[in-house]
Amino acid sequence: MSENETTITKDDIVEWLKATAAVLEENAHYLSELDAPIGDADHGINMNRGFKKVMSKLPNVEDKDIGTILRTTGMALISSVGGAGGPLYGTLYLEAGKAVRGKTELSANDLVNLIEASLKGIVKLGKANIGDKTMVDAITPAVEALRQSVNNGNSLIEALHSMTDAAQKGMKDTIPMLAKKGRASYLGERSIGHQDPGATSSYLVLKTLSETIESRHASK
């Protein structure tokens, strides 16, 4: 098991959510452009709207435990994103919140449990398998890489780097895939050659987690 003593605090999580909102705003156009050829060109608009709602709710729960903060994030997304992205991203944060209920600090193992619970939740809801060209294709390898790195005793920062690299590769691996879920599936062969927008936003969310933790721990 990991020997490192770095932990993730409640404030780290709040900063991560704020940074995520900023990253999704910056990338709103890019995500919608990715969505245009295989969806309906609104993924970036929807995620941006959702995280604006999260930002409006965050001040009410900033001093609560991490579980409550993540649960509030999930509920805000469910009530504002719409489409399939709303329930899926909402579930991602709701399940994450459930996995760390009552905690104000997370160990590396807590983080592994949190992200595993998220993945399990979206797989149950969306019934996507790996290879279906969805967000599951980015998150599944990311979870595996994170778990393995933590188990190998690497530092939290190293483990987060492995997670981000795996998510990025998973995201790029969706390009040659044939979509089997969601609106993209109606394209059949025509879905091949396009990077999945959901996998891309999932990568951005995970990358932002890694970058937030790294920059905050470097400045401590």
Binding site: D40, I45, N46, S79, V81, G82, G83, G86
Partner: peptide, 11 residues
């Protein structure tokens, strides 16, 4: 009603 061409939300 959801946003144009986007499902509405559970609330």
């Amino acid at each position: 009603p959801g946003a144009v061409f986007t499902s509405p939300t559970p609330d």
